[in-house]
Design a protein around this nucleic acid. Sequence first.
DNA 1: ATGAAAGCGCTAACAC
DNA 2: GTGTTAGCGCTTTCAT
Lengths: 339, 339
Amino acid sequence: MDNYFIFVPMNRINIKDLAKLLSLNPSTVSRALSDHPDIKSETKERVKAAAAEFNYLPNLHARYFRQKSSRLIALVLPEFNMYFIPGLMDGVNTVLKDSGYSIIIFFSDNSLEREKEIVNYCLSWVVEGVLISLSEHTKNCDHLLPLKDAGITVVLLDKVIHSQDFTTVTIDDKDAARNAVQYLYENKKTHILGIFANPSLEITRLRVAGFTSAHLDAGLPPPGDEDIVYIYKDTKSEWLEAKLLAKNYDGVFVMSDELLMYSYASFRKLQLYPQKISIVAISDGILPIQLYPQVSHFLHSGYEIGKKAAAVLLSTKKEPSGVFHHVIPIQLIRLDSVV
Amino acid sequence: MDNYFIFVPMNRINIKDLAKLLSLNPSTVSRALSDHPDIKSETKERVKAAAAEFNYLPNLHARYFRQKSSRLIALVLPEFNMYFIPGLMDGVNTVLKDSGYSIIIFFSDNSLEREKEIVNYCLSWVVEGVLISLSEHTKNCDHLLPLKDAGITVVLLDKVIHSQDFTTVTIDDKDAARNAVQYLYENKKTHILGIFANPSLEITRLRVAGFTSAHLDAGLPPPGDEDIVYIYKDTKSEWLEAKLLAKNYDGVFVMSDELLMYSYASFRKLQLYPQKISIVAISDGILPIQLYPQVSHFLHSGYEIGKKAAAVLLSTKKEPSGVFHHVIPIQLIRLDSVV
DNA sequence: ATGAAAGCGCTAACAC
DNA sequence: GTGTTAGCGCTTTCAT
């Protein structure tokens, strides 16, 4: 007999069912559930008791479809970076988790094409806000304008392109790099190698600019081409090691956690750190304190950026305001005893 | 005059508008857009051209609401772990990105209460599948049963509790720990310290079991209480260092990347590694090759687990099948020259 | 090959 | 304080 019972997806109880059960009108039930002031508290309690008893859960597609909203925030990320991304997501989640918004997440895999597709998904899902860190192949924000036109709040974070169209949340990249060099200089380091990521990123260009200008400010000769190395996905560590030994460097600036992780083994292997050179990095803070010996860094916290960006998004939704470029202050974490 | 132009959210073009524009019926437009065989190709082309011209994008809430589906997969994670989570998300994304599903992400922050709330969100969003790694306070899967009852496919991954109700994707935790000890033993290490996470996790208990049983298999005396250390969020590294020096250990087993990161500085500081001890870890693979010196490990790839879990989810949706416990094979990555 | 009409579950005017 | 009714945008019978 058992095989007569085939699986039929349980028809979930809805507001209409609840109304029938209580001999009320669907609209009354709806209002009771959302604590509408018109409904007397006795009715509210009856309705809520029944809702709890029969495990009523609203269908959010129906609700938000009707309300022409979605309570959905899109988080768009270019890649899976183990240092920065988890902190960033943590920060975003911290702000959004009790706000009633849910997070729909997209990865552009550093492709502009994919980023454009994702913009369409955001429109199709009628998201209420977009937090986006741009792909490394994105050169401008034109493809984000349809979001703006649709009235969707967009906040760029971390990997951004500054424009008049969109609010951004970043650290002061140029200043961070400048401070780092200055710090090395104050500790009598004058031959400094800068280790940078892909120069097509605005974030890289700004940090290179800061690196260079700090040399000038300090009265040091400007760094030559050989003093600035760009590391790509396929750069071999042997190549970096040759660069490290090419000159008598006494200081190294590393612009990110990935690059610190990438290069640290070389510093140790060549017995440069802590013996001969000082290192300053820009970092999310987790890696440099776990390394041995530890590494001084300027704190570039994904958590803080995520929190700020999400907060800016929510407050912009509450009361719309103009485009603003928010800059998260950085902070020196001094961890070596050698400099 | 300018202030007469207040912002009115642009009424997006919908199927009805498109139909009016083309003097067609909305249903015809709908069918044309979804390549219904009844519609002649000339009409299809007209419709698609107009859709492209006027930037028509479907309202997915309306579509999936009508279709009683959602093309939404929930990814539920307990915390922000920099080693494992990014790889896991990468794996999930790799499988889902071209499947038409979007990912809605929730973090339980290791709270069972929050996990229950998230289950309700999944039901309210009518998600089509749930990929969940359990919170460390979750002791059974009863709170997931409403998902099952609603016909929603659930796949547990990594931090799981095995039961007859839900499919799981994990590595063979017990076997991985056993292999690790065996590997140390084969390299003549007989005094082995095991470093473990919170023992309330099934994943920890299994790895401890493997650690212990491997001692017996090898004919070693079973590890005493002092040979197994559990590291909690607030455990001080001084305490670990005392344990490391308490006996003449020649081998250490570390059950995860976080713990490897946590303990590695101590090994180096005390000049234990590579001088006096060998280390074997269970790891996602990124950290141990970047450390200097590198660390041998059994590869526990978040990427592979994420990929497998997402693939299992999709295939289960295509043709429903019973509960199955999938085990991802682990692989020894031998990296030290000292053992 | 296309049109007409109904309805998914919910909320918000508008009645009373 | 509660009921009536309409409609969000879309798909899908059913009719032609």
